[in-house]
């Protein structure tokens, strides 16, 4: 649990970050909260000769709430939990953040780190897919945005280039009912299964549903078919079963200490059913 030697950099602006990244290429990694990267370095599973700490970089820590919500990459889970404007506008964020790790980790862990790392166990990527968020990336060729739903390629593999930095996430203020439902073995654990659901309603009919699943494949899974199964329905038992069946067809869990595949498939269905039921009750 002792990392190899590394150089620690602490630039104060994005230009400084980008110049370090272009200078050191693969040998450099940016660090936000460090709660994924530092353990990997201590286990010597990540070789990072140049560590670039983002905490002094200007402009990465704001939360803007309007029709579009923008959250800076260095905003912590604790900031999300404490932000009343954000909670009023997009309450699913607080509900999800409260289920991430424990208070000590939430004071350090950031939105940017959580979404950019590409760890299938992280909760924010699926949530961002549910919200159809856009990720802003800054690199040597300037700024671009990538939809959360297109960002994840495989475990720890994302659309982000080695010389790019994820600076913020943004999404339209969600409407309707919401739920983030997560089963975990204990505090601090990744999900056995988790799902994020946003639903809108007109009269007794569901007008739209967005569903994403966490830690049930090597990437977060946005299940378009699951949402489609609910849209236009009255969200009765048949519709929920159809949505669950669609979501289960999209996921591909693997066996680990949390349990075998059959268990995870079963629990994924239960958790999603609960999430849909709760989101619908709030719609």
């Amino acid at each position: 649990m002792i990392p190899a030697a590394f150089d620690y950099h602490r630039p104060t602006d994005m230009a400084g970050v980008l110049s370090l990244l272009s200078e050191h290429g693969d040998d450099a990694r940016v660090m936000a909260g460090g709660h994924s990267l530092i353990p990997l370095m201590k286990l010597r599973m990540a070789d990072v000769p140049h560590l670039i700490d983002l905490q002094d970089v200007e402009g990465l820590s704001g939360i803007d709430v309007g029709e579009t919500i923008r959250i800076g990459a260095m905003v912590t889970q604790a900031d999300i939990i404490d932000h009343t404007g954000l909670t009023a506008s997009a309450p699913i964020l607080r509900e999800a953040a409260l289920q991430i790790a424990d208070p000590q980790v939430r004071y350090m862990g950031t939105v940017g780190g959580n979404v950019a790392n590409g760890d299938p166990g992280n909760d924010m990527p699926g949530l961002m897919q549910c919200l159809d968020a856009q990720f802003t990336l800054v690199g040597p060729d300037g700024e671009r945005t990538v939809p959360a739903r297109d960002f994840y390629e495989a475990a720890y593999m994302t659309e982000r280039g080695d010389e790019e930095v994820l600076t913020s996430v943004s999404f339209a203020a969600p409407k309707g009912g919401y739920a983030y439902e997560k089963q975990k073995r204990k505090i601090g654990d990744y999900a056995t299964a988790a799902s994020a659901v946003q639903m809108t309603k007109d009269g007794g009919t569901c007008t739209s549903a967005s569903i994403a699943m966490t830690n049930l494949s090597d990437t977060p899974i946005f299940s378009e078919n699951a949402g489609a199964a609910l849209a236009g329905s009255t969200v009765d038992e048949t519709a929920i079963k159809a949505a669950v069946a669609a979501a289960l067809a999209d996921i591909d869990p693997t066996e680990d200490n949390r349990g075998p595949v059959a268990f995870k498939m079963h629990v994924a269905g239960v958790i999603l059913t609960r999430a849909i039921t709760r989101a619908w009750s709030r719609a």
Binding site: Q183, R185, T192, R258, G259, P260, A262, F263, H266, V267
Partner: peptide
């Protein structure tokens, strides 16, 4: 008796 093993008891007993 962690989650999956309790689930398996129920599953083996036909409770699902």
């Amino acid at each position: 008796h962690d989650h999956w093993r309790v689930w398996k008891i129920a599953n083996d007993l036909g409770l699902h």
